[in-house]
């Protein structure tokens, strides 16, 4: 038994459909719990006051914005190498979620930045990188929409995703070089020294877990929808011929 068995569309839908309500339920519980914990049961920051609490939305959405693209890169590679349709459709299903996460990170960042920096927007490297990431998502989704033949679209978007990833990383370094920026250093890292205090860290972890599970649930639902759309198209094509 190999993991690739689940690449069969029917098996994929049969396996994942019962999981979705559970994933959704747990993720909503985690998000509600984490946000309540973060908003009402953590102290205000001594410099930033209560504005710091938007952190519980900002950090998870920013994290997801990047990781969703990373997931699309992996599923695109799987499609190009192994030609499993579900993989390509999962990448297609993930893109709109990724772009929403990116927009959320930008908006929550602007709301947080306004009282801190006195401006909604600054051409700071991190902010700018997310804006560029937003454009990459936009182009990727537009290419999917523009091409009629689904396999052609899957091939071309996968190639774009790979090339885009290289240029996205390149842009990140270029933007760093271009402006040193206002943004505080990363809030979370594996190196504990840099991290925020534990009292903020635990509710943030709960929120991140909630975001991740929410993403998984949404991607499974959307992938199942994409599979059904493809099935309808395939059946129609057979009926016509």
């Amino acid at each position: 038994m190999s993991i690739w068995e689940y690449a069969n569309p029917k098996k994929f839908i049969a396996t994942t459909t019962p999981l979705v309500p559970w994933l959704l339920g747990v993720s909503i519980a985690l998000l509600v719990g984490g946000l309540i914990w973060g908003f009402f049961f953590t102290p205000d920051d001594f410099r930033q006051g209560s504005t710091v609490k938007i952190f519980y939305l900002h950090v998870p959405s920013a994290l997801m914005a990047i990781n969703v693209w990373f997931m699309m890169l992996i599923t695109s590679l799987v499609w190009l190498v192994r030609r499993h349709h579900v993989s390509a459709l999962a990448a297609r299903a993930a893109a709109p979620i990724g772009i929403i996460m990116t927009v959320m990170a930008l908006i929550t960042g602007a709301i947080w930045g306004q009282p801190m920096w006195g401006t909604w927007w600054a051409w700071d490297p991190r902010l700018t990188s997310f804006l560029i990431l937003f454009l990459f998502y936009l182009g990727y989704m537009a290419l999917w929409e523009a091409i009629e033949d689904p396999d052609t679209a899957a091939d071309l978007t996968s190639v774009l995703c790979i090339v885009g990833s290289v240029f996205a990383v390149l842009s990140r370094y270029a933007v760093n070089f271009w402006n040193q920026g206002l943004h505080q250093p990363a809030s979370l890292s594996l190196d504990k020294e840099e991290n925020v205090a534990d009292v903020f860290w635990y509710p943030a972890l709960v929120c991140i877990a909630g975001f991740v599970l929410l993403f998984v649930a949404l991607v499974l639902m959307r992938t199942a929808t994409e599979i059904r759309v493809r099935r309808i198209k395939a059946l129609e094509a057979r009926m016509r011929s």
Partner: peptide, 15 residues
């Protein structure tokens, strides 16, 4: 002419 249920098309997995 391929039969309507012919196998091997790239959309086969969806039928």
């Amino acid at each position: 002419k391929a039969a309507p249920d012919a196998r091997g098309g790239s959309d086969e997995a969806f039928l």
